Computed example of a mutant assay.
Amino acid sequence: MKIALHGRNFNAAARPFIQAMFDELARRRIEVQLSAPFRQFLDQSDVQHHTSLVYDAPADLFDARLIVSMGGDGTLLETVSLVGARQIPAIGINVGRLGFLATVPPERIPDMIRALEAGKYRIDERSMLTLESDTDLFDGLNFGLNDFAITKTDTSSMITVHAYLNGQFLNSYWADGLIISTPTGSTGYSLSCGGPVLVPHSQNFILTPVSPHNLNVRPLVVEDTSVLSFEVKSRSNSFLLSLDSRSRVVDESTRITIRKAPFVARLIKMLDDDFFNTLRSKLSWGLDMRN
């Protein structure tokens, strides 16, 4: 079996688990290819990985059966961007904080490797969104699994986001920004701004304003077949665009269109990994400190 591996810096507490993972992969003769940044970090650490194959971009990935993300949710989002339209299945080991997408705890790495080798897992296909603009804003990585956000820069003034749904005027949002979220991203930035939680396979987008001037402007759920376009006005003549873990400041002449991506993210889930269990454990649903 061939796998690719991407990761970020990890703390000392995670090191024994990561070393054990590489030892187990070597024992099982599983061929591994590392992302260039993670290989550089491992070379500076005490982890012995015995891996020489490296990739810098999706085109450099070898014929991997799957890709493993080692970090938190942000690392898994980076991993999805490295995979792109190749749709290689990805699984996340959580050596970060919340771990809503990266759901495998470090102590279960041996169980994960055995399950992957035996094919005892399921593939969870998640819809993504794609950004279209008159310029290449994110070096060809114009897609996201979680969300796309339009926000003000470092000024204190609000921005105005004129939003259109399938070419029809929807609303002018006077706010600090506007988030367009997938169902997967509904438990992220959108949720912190008052957006609803959607189950992963809902065929929708969420438009969630960030600190709107008009308090009666609420989050809106639309079909993911919708085409959303935006014009932005700002006193500074610029604003910030964010696409998952990537961001860029652009000027207000930039025209933006968001639609459903023509490919999906394929997330590997262990057979006992359940979305509603994750909701209860990560968001403390049903927890009552009085009991």
Rank of each mutant, 00 (worst) to 15 (best):
4 A>Y: 03
249 V>M: 10
135 T>R: 14
221 V>S: 09
120 K>P: 00
223 E>I: 04
137 L>T: 04
43 D>G: 12
164 Y>L: 03
240 L>E: 07
264 V>R: 14
136 D>R: 05
77 L>I: 10
161 V>W: 08
90 A>E: 00
288 D>T: 12
141 L>P: 00
102 A>T: 13
222 V>G: 06
35 S>M: 04
74 G>D: 10
108 R>A: 00
137 L>S: 04
237 N>A: 12
53 L>G: 06
148 F>P: 06
210 V>Y: 03
27 R>V: 08
176 D>G: 08
184 T>Y: 05
230 F>C: 01
216 N>R: 13
177 G>I: 11
277 N>K: 10
1 M>R: 11
239 F>L: 03
218 R>D: 01
167 G>M: 08
17 F>Y: 15
247 S>V: 07
93 I>Y: 00
141 L>A: 13
199 V>H: 13
13 A>D: 12
155 T>H: 04
151 T>N: 11
232 V>K: 03
223 E>D: 10
250 V>P: 06
114 R>I: 01
8 R>W: 02
228 L>S: 01
136 D>Q: 05
141 L>Y: 11
42 L>D: 02
175 A>I: 06
42 L>G: 05
32 V>I: 11
194 G>D: 06
140 G>F: 04
107 E>I: 02
22 F>E: 08
258 I>G: 06
152 K>G: 08
260 K>N: 06
275 F>T: 01
253 S>G: 12
200 P>G: 04
59 A>G: 07
167 G>L: 04
287 L>P: 00
216 N>K: 11
92 G>Y: 03
165 L>A: 07
93 I>K: 02
44 Q>V: 03
131 L>W: 12
149 A>E: 11
46 D>W: 02
6 H>N: 12
125 E>M: 07
55 Y>M: 13
67 I>G: 03
20 A>N: 14
117 E>Y: 03
252 E>D: 12
4 A>Q: 01
57 A>K: 15
24 E>N: 08
229 S>W: 10
222 V>S: 07
217 V>Y: 04
246 R>N: 04
62 F>V: 11
39 R>K: 14
164 Y>F: 15
35 S>F: 03
24 E>L: 15
10 F>V: 10
171 N>S: 13
72 G>H: 06
138 F>H: 07
282 K>M: 07
166 N>I: 09
9 N>G: 12
254 T>K: 08
182 T>G: 05
18 I>P: 10
225 T>K: 15
42 L>W: 04
59 A>M: 03
229 S>N: 07
92 G>I: 04
6 H>S: 15
168 Q>L: 09
219 P>R: 10
117 E>I: 14
7 G>F: 09
247 S>I: 07
23 D>V: 13
215 L>Q: 00
25 L>H: 05
172 S>H: 10
157 S>R: 15
264 V>C: 12
13 A>K: 15
